[in-house]
């Protein structure tokens, strides 16, 4: 494939790499697995890139290919490490704004999401990424209504985790 295509692709991926990293975080539980999945997604994106017509946004197209790879094409036996890495290191917010209880809740929710099956995880991921239901339904290949129903069920599930 020609050099220019490669350059555009790598540049675009570099700009949008966050999407891939986030999927890796959700679908893997250690750094090695994270890197492996990132690489696999990169390869799949590159293979599919010639078919990317530019009628959708690059990022939208990326969601689809990357999630597909995580759910179907990539399947190394993942060790069930309890979700240590998502501990909220990020909470550098002011203490008066968020107390320990909230941190604890967030942690619980992330843990619960990691325990979901691959498909539900994808749904939650797209939801957290603020994609609309039309987008979600197209990516997963289900109807919009079903995506909503399913999402509501997951919400309820998460609520029970928080308020047992």
């Amino acid at each position: 494939m020609n050099k220019e295509l490669q350059h555009t692709f790598v540049t675009l991926l570099e700009e949008n790499q966050n999407i891939v990293h986030k999927i890796c975080r959700l679908y893997t539980s250690d750094q090695d697995a994270h890197n492996d999945l990132f690489q696999e997604i990169t390869i799949q994106l590159w293979k599919a890139y010639p078919k990317f017509r530019g009628d959708a946004k690059f990022s939208t197209w990326m969601y689809r290919v990357a999630l597909n790879t995580a759910i179907t094409l990539y399947r190394k036996s993942k060790k069930k490490v309890k979700t240590q890495e998502i501990e909220p290191i990020s909470f550098k917010m002011k203490a008066e704004e968020y107390d320990d209880a909230i941190e604890q809740q967030l942690k619980l929710m992330y843990e619960a999401i990691k325990e979901l099956n691959d498909i539900d995880k994808a749904l939650v991921f797209l939801y957290l990424e603020d994609r609309d239901y039309k987008d979600i339904s197209e990516t997963l290949g289900i109807s919009e209504v079903n995506a909503r129903v399913k999402m509501n069920r997951i919400k309820t599930k998460l609520k029970t985790v928080l308020n047992p």
Partner: peptide, 12 residues
Amino acid sequence: IHQMLWKKSSSQ
């Protein structure tokens, strides 16, 4: 990222 393009895919 560029280097990754040349690695082999391990897809199932």
